[in-house]
């Protein structure tokens, strides 16, 4: 019973980790974008663009590198459209984002038509079958305490492919970038108060373009995970609304890349925990533990985070100060 539970928990955590990858990478991308003061609701569209371009190239070339590059370029093109419209043309960010989602989904589904049902080619599959951190535990399996703990950690967190660890590395990198680098400081300043940033000599327009493009490219990588690694084939609307969960998650983790790793894991776990709980008859009777109800939790929790940020007498940081406010130097 005891070990049975541990094994199940480890497997559950491992699934949650796998499910959370596109959420995490997308959240990192949207975090970069929003930190520059741009609410880009085109995440779903950019994920789809990245997924289709990357998968198409993977199928054609059997090259992981080219596939990643194609995903970056595809979603980057979508982000560029958004940047031109919202930064230079000062179009409404919400409407532009929605348009980008419709456009990106359309382009992706059209492109994907040619590869429906195809699987990733052998070299790509082999690459993502690698488990670089998987440890050989045969030596300590029977050591009391240490053995089972190591086994649990290994089963839950160390038997994943490169994409998973790449995502975590990206989160760490981004956290370092935002906190410790000059460019990160400038990015935060642009999103908080572009007029102050401008007066300090920061190139506001260039910074916004860079952040939107980089953020969009990350969304593309988030999308590519779905056909290339997770589902391993192409179907219509393959990202399945994860772009919208990302928008929620960014708020939930308060624009923080480190918290994003935990937030994504939590949302990933919530996406599957209901099915697990069905194994426990004493819980499955209650509707509160049904997967269908649990599916609402991420959004409810995000609403709560949104409301709490504004509630109370002393208001805390409520996200980038100039989020979705257009900036025009000579407007007065």
């Amino acid at each position: 019973m005891e070990t049975g539970f541990a094994v199940m928990a480890a497997l559950f955590l491992a699934s949650a980790v796998r499910i959370s990858v596109p959420l995490l990478v997308g959240t990192l991308g949207e975090t970069v974008t929003e930190r520059a003061g741009h609410l880009n609701l085109g995440v779903e569209g950019m994920m789809m663009l990245g997924a289709s371009a990357g998968f198409l190239v993977a199928v054609r070339t059997d090259s992981v590198l080219l596939a990643l590059l194609a995903a970056i370029l595809g979603s980057g093109a979508g982000a560029l459209l958004y940047a031109v419209l919202t930064v230079t043309f000062r179009a409404n960010q919400v409407v532009t984002g929605l348009a980008l989602t419709i456009f990106g989904t359309g382009v992706a589904n059209t492109l994907g038509k040619t590869v429906v049902g195809e699987n990733p080619p052998p070299a790509v599959q082999a690459f993502f079958a690698l488990k670089p951190l998987h440890a050989d535990l045969s030596g300590i399996r029977d050591v009391p305490v240490l053995g089972p703990v190591a086994g649990f950690v290994d089963a839950a967190f160390l038997q994943h492919n490169v994409y998973v660890y790449g995502a975590v590395a990206l989160a760490l990198l981004l956290a370092w970038f935002l906190r410790r680098t000059r460019a990160g400081l400038h990015l935060r300043a642009i999103g908080e108060n572009p007029a102050a940033a401008d007066a300090s000599g920061i190139r506001v327009i260039a910074g916004k373009y860079a952040a939107i493009l980089a953020g969009g490219m990350m969304c593309g990588l988030a999308g590519l995970y779905m056909p290339l690694v997770h589902i391993q084939t192409w179907t219509d609307n393959i990202t399945g609304g994860r772009g919208w969960i990302v928008v929620a998650l960014v708020i939930f983790v308060r624009w923080d890349p480190l918290k994003a790793t935990l937030g994504a894991l939590l949302f990933g776990a919530l996406a599957i925990v209901g099915f697990l709980l069905q194994a426990y008859p004493q819980l499955s009777g209650s509707i509160l533990f049904s997967q269908y109800v649990i599916d609402m939790y991420p959004y409810l929790m995000t609403l709560l985070a949104l409301v709490l940020a504004n509630a109370g007498r002393k208001k805390g940081w409520q996200g980038p100060g100039a989020l979705s406010v257009p900036y025009f130097r000579e407007e007065r």
């Binding site: 410790r180 680098t181 000059r182 460019a183 400081l185 300043a189 940033a197 300090s200 000599g201 920061i202």
Partner: peptide, 10 residues
């Protein structure tokens, strides 16, 4: 320090 200096790290 914002807006000054070169290089990546600060």
């Amino acid at each position: 320090a914002m807006g000054t200096g070169d290089g990546l790290s600060r």
